[in-house]
C-alpha cells in the first residue's frame, strides 16, 4: 500500500534530543546525538546491529539513563523527572518491543486490558471491553481475543504488541525493529499498520530498523546512525543518494537481499 501524505506540523517538536551520549563500560554507543521529531512525523532510524538504535529509544522512554545530554519529550526533560512524573509521561508514549513482550501468562484480552485497567481506574467494564475491541479491530486481529500469546504467530504477536500500546491513545510511538524476523508479506502488513496508526491515531513515531523496505514505506524522514552519530538525515532518496562509503554498503546489501 502506498504511504498516504502525512499531516506533519514542522513548527511543533514532540521529541528534542541534544548532545546525547551513552556508554556501556568502556564502549561508547552514542557519541553526541542531536534529534528533533516533529508532530505527526514518522522518523526512521537506520543503522547496523549494535549501532545503538534500540539504546536510543530506551533512553527516550527512560528505561536507560544517559551519560550526557538532554532528552525532552512533550516538553519534559526525561532525565529530571520523578518516578511518578516519568510514569505519567510514559502513558503518552507507546513502545512496541522487538520481541513484542506480551505477558505470556495472560490472554490477548488481559494483555490489552492491563495498561488500561492500571492507568485509567475510572473506566467501567463496558468501556474497557469497547477499547479492547476497538484496538483489536484496528490491528485486524479480533478473532484472537481469547488466545494465549504462545498460540499466536510472530506477525500476530507484533500486531497485538502494537495494539497494547495503542489502547492508551499515545501521542508518540516508538517501534523497535517492527519487522525483525518476519516474512516479506507480514513485513508489508506491519508497515501498512504503522502508516495506518500514524493516520488514524495522529501519532509521531520513531521507527528503529535495518530493513530498507520498512524505512522506505513508513518513514517521512530517515536518520542514518553510524559510529554513534547521525551521519546523514533526510528523505529516503536524499540519504540513499550518497557516496559515503560507510552508508553505501548498507543500501547495496539490502537491495541484493
Amino acid at each position: 500500500m502506498e504511504k498516504a501524505k502525512a499531516n506533519i506540523d514542522y513548527t511543533k517538536t514532540v521529541i528534542s534530543i541534544r548532545g546525547l551520549e551513552k556508554s556501556f563500560e568502556d564502549f561508547a554507543v552514542l557519541r553526541g546525538i542531536d534529534l528533533d521529531l516533529h508532530q505527526g512525523e514518522n522518523l526512521v532510524v537506520l543503522g547496523r546491529s549494535g549501532s545503538g538504535k534500540s539504546v536510543l529509544i530506551k533512553l527516550i522512554s527512560g528505561l536507560l539513563k544517559p551519560d550526557k545530554g538532554t532528552i525532552e519529550v512533550l516538553g519534559k526533560d526525561v532525565c529530571c523527572l520523578s518516578d511518578k512524573e516519568l510514569r505519567e509521561l510514559r502513558i503518552r508514549m507507546g513502545f512496541s518491543f522487538q520481541s513484542s513482550a506480551l505477558y505470556d501468562s495472560m490472554t490477548v484480552r488481559k494483555n490489552l486490558e492491563f495498561p488500561l485497567v492500571r492507568n485509567q481506574k475510572q473506566l467501567g467494564r463496558k468501556e474497557i471491553d469497547a477499547a479492547v475491541e476497538s484496538v483489536l479491530d484496528a490491528v485486524g486481529l479480533s478473532q484472537t481475543i481469547n488466545q494465549m500469546p504462545a498460540e499466536l504467530s510472530g506477525g500476530q504477536r507484533k500486531r497485538i504488541g502494537i495494539a497494547r500500546t495503542l489502547i492508551l491513545n499515545p501521542e508518540i510511538m516508538l517501534y523497535d525493529e517492527p519487522t525483525g524476523g518476519l516474512d516479506p508479506i507480514t513485513c508489508t502488513e506491519i508497515n501498512d499498520l504503522i502508516n495506518e496508526v500514524q493516520q488514524r491515531y495522529h501519532t509521531s513515531s520513531i521507527i528503529i530498523t535495518h530493513d530498507l523496505t520498512c524505512a522506505k514505506s513508513t518513514g517521512d524522514r530517515i536518520a542514518m546512525l553510524i559510529d554513534g552519530k547521525f551521519q546523514r538525515t533526510g528523505s529516503f532518496e536524499e540519504v540513499f543518494e550518497t557516496k559515503d562509503e560507510r552508508i553505501k554498503p548498507f543500501f547495496d546489501y539490502n537491495f541484493i537481499q
Binding site: 528505561l63 508514549m93 505470556d104 492507568n119 497494547r164
Partner: peptide
Amino acid sequence: SMRVTEQIDAMEVSGTN
C-alpha cells in the same frame, strides 16, 4: 524469563510500576 523477554520493560513503559 519476564526480564529476558522484555516483559518487565513493557510493564514499565506502559505506566505500571
